[in-house]
Design a protein around this nucleic acid. Structure first.
Lengths: 216, 216
DNA sequence: GTAGTTTTTTAGACAAGTCTAAAAATAATA
DNA sequence: TATTATTTTTAGACTTGTCTAAAAAACTAC
């Protein structure tokens, strides 16, 4: 079994690897809010356990075993988020920290039964795909509103930014998952996007449009 | 907040205090399967945080603050056990270790909502009372079968031994919570108890009778 | 390709929690 | 009460995961 710290490192490396090609020590340190020297120590440890491929100064990647662990943690995180929102009626901006603890509950039997109890949900409350018990899941097929053309339509299906301040803003604007939107105009000055939703017209900044995802 | 180790010590002290008057270093060490020297170190730490009353060589007791923490952990443990059995269909002998991890999930808001989700259960799958969100719960009003007289009746309502080997034995014999039993005979040679249950007659040892609890 | 900057690693230290071995306090017994 | 025996505590060491400060390697730029 892996320690809590090891699990958090593996998850961080997995997430960074999906964004950039090679993952660096500094990136990991920033993402975990720790120091580069602490990261180096842990990388050696994870490398000894053959969970990552690591050579000094060269950056890291997950081994197959390491990726499996990381995906399992993400599966747990997303299933607990779904449970908290769907069964315990928490709001989507409230669940992250709790799920961050719950993802480390070790039993896989437990998480598989939880999955079944909830009807094998495919996406968590933020639209992120939930890996199945074999680690399989659909690669994210969502694109940001900022990539849409004028007069294109779509369904709000996910977010890139999971911070509660962003989620609360979306909630307030009614920009929640499942809503249909149409791009009416893109203001060239600052790329503000003008949307139509439920016969209402609203404007969102490029920043927001970039973090709000649409099903194709 | 308290660390995982601190929480486990507080819980252990709470449980021992309900059995014996003064709690000793060695008792705690035995119950946590650690060494007396480790216990002494932790006792100083908990004493500094005013969670226990401790003077060297004199044994310990929980302060009001410490008891509150301990009861809250027990509340979490028992609610998660109830969840695992009632919602995820685990058997009562399978849930202890999982609940042992889950009792350390910190959010009280989460546990209160879980409590509500399940309809505020009063007892966990082993018949132990579940403290409410204010830490209140009925002191155990159950007595062991070994304390029953011949021809007395009762309803199986709890267990003293939570080990999976004992619970599996009970399950196999059909001695599960809710069943009505009558004491037919107590064999004086070794205090074996002869029970009637569902028109069946069965014998249990004094050891078993002592660990199986009946509602008065 | 040398100098300067940035990134990464090493070296050494610290806190939490554990351990073994030895000392001190308490309890039990003759 | 003196002497064992037991319990508890101290002293010192180890592991995990972290940190700061300094050294080493890798980039960048001229």
């Amino acid at each position: 079994m892996n320690t809590l710290a090891e699990e958090n490192y593996l998850k961080a490396i997995y997430k960074l690897a999906s964004l950039t090609e090679s993952v660096s020590t500094n990136q990991i340190a920033a993402s975990l809010e720790t120091k580069a020297s602490s990261v180096t120590d842990m990388l050696r440890k994870l490398s000894d356990k053959t969970l990552i491929n690591y050579t000094r100064y060269q950056g890291v990647s997950l081994t197959e075993a390491g990726e499996k662990v990381a995906i399992n943690i993400i599966r747990k995180h997303r299933l607990w988020e779904y449970f908290l929102v769907e069964k315990l009626n928490f709001k989507w901006d409230e669940v992250h920290d709790m799920a961050e603890e719950m993802e480390h509950i070790s039993s896989n039997e437990l998480i598989d039964r939880l999955d079944e109890f909830m009807g094998f949900p495919k996406r968590d409350p933020h639209g992120d795909p939930i890996p199945d018990c074999n680690g399989q899941f659909k690669i994210n097929d969502l694109k940001p509103i900022s990539a849409m053309a004028v007069s294109a339509r779509g369904i709000i299906s996910g977010v890139r930014d999971h911070s509660s301040v962003f989620l609360q803003y979306l909630e307030k604007q009614g920009l929640i998952i499942g809503k249909k939107i149409t791009v009416k105009e893109i203001i060239s000055y600052d790329n503000t996007v003008v949307l139509q939703m439920d016969n209402k017209v609203l404007q969102i900044s490029h920043e927001v449009a970039n973090n709000l995802l649409i099903a194709i």
